[in-house]
Computed example of a mutant assay.
Amino acid sequence: MELPYDAVLCDFDGVIRHYDPGGLTDLERSCGLAEGGTMAIAMAPELLGPVTRGEITTGQWAASIVAELERRLGSAERAAALGRAFAEARVSLDEEVLGLLRLAQARVPVVLVTNATLQLEEDLRDLGLEHAFDEVVNSARVGAVKPERRIYEIAAERAGASAARCLFVDDRAENVEAARAAGMAGVLYRTVADLRGALAPLLDGDASPVP
Rank of each mutant, 00 (worst) to 15 (best):
residue 9 L to K: 07
residue 61 W to S: 02
residue 194 D to E: 04
residue 89 A to S: 15
residue 149 R to P: 11
residue 111 V to S: 02
residue 16 I to E: 05
residue 133 F to P: 12
residue 202 L to S: 01
residue 22 G to N: 13
residue 14 G to A: 09
residue 206 D to C: 14
residue 205 G to N: 01
residue 109 P to N: 06
residue 140 A to K: 02
residue 200 A to L: 02
residue 21 P to E: 14
residue 41 I to D: 00
residue 129 L to G: 06
residue 33 L to F: 05
residue 26 D to V: 09
residue 114 T to M: 06
residue 124 L to D: 13
residue 30 S to Y: 03
residue 104 A to K: 10
residue 76 A to R: 14
residue 174 E to L: 12
residue 141 R to M: 10
residue 78 R to M: 13
residue 179 A to G: 15
residue 116 A to Y: 10
residue 81 A to S: 14
residue 130 E to T: 05
residue 150 R to I: 13
residue 79 A to G: 13
residue 29 R to Q: 12
residue 76 A to C: 06
residue 85 A to L: 08
residue 134 D to M: 05
residue 102 R to V: 07
residue 118 L to H: 11
residue 15 V to M: 02
residue 156 A to L: 10
residue 107 R to A: 14
residue 161 A to C: 11
residue 165 R to N: 15
residue 183 G to P: 03
residue 65 I to C: 00
residue 32 G to Y: 00
residue 37 G to E: 03
residue 36 G to T: 01
residue 107 R to W: 11
residue 11 D to A: 00
residue 106 A to S: 14
residue 93 L to F: 01
residue 72 R to C: 05
residue 14 G to V: 11
residue 109 P to H: 05
residue 62 A to S: 06
residue 96 E to A: 08
residue 73 L to K: 10
residue 204 D to I: 04
residue 83 G to Y: 10
residue 188 L to Q: 03
residue 13 D to H: 12
residue 155 A to W: 03
residue 163 A to R: 14
residue 97 V to G: 04
residue 152 Y to D: 11
residue 15 V to K: 01
residue 92 S to K: 06
residue 84 R to Y: 13
residue 160 G to H: 08
residue 195 L to N: 08
residue 51 V to E: 05
residue 3 L to I: 07
residue 189 Y to S: 03
residue 75 S to W: 14
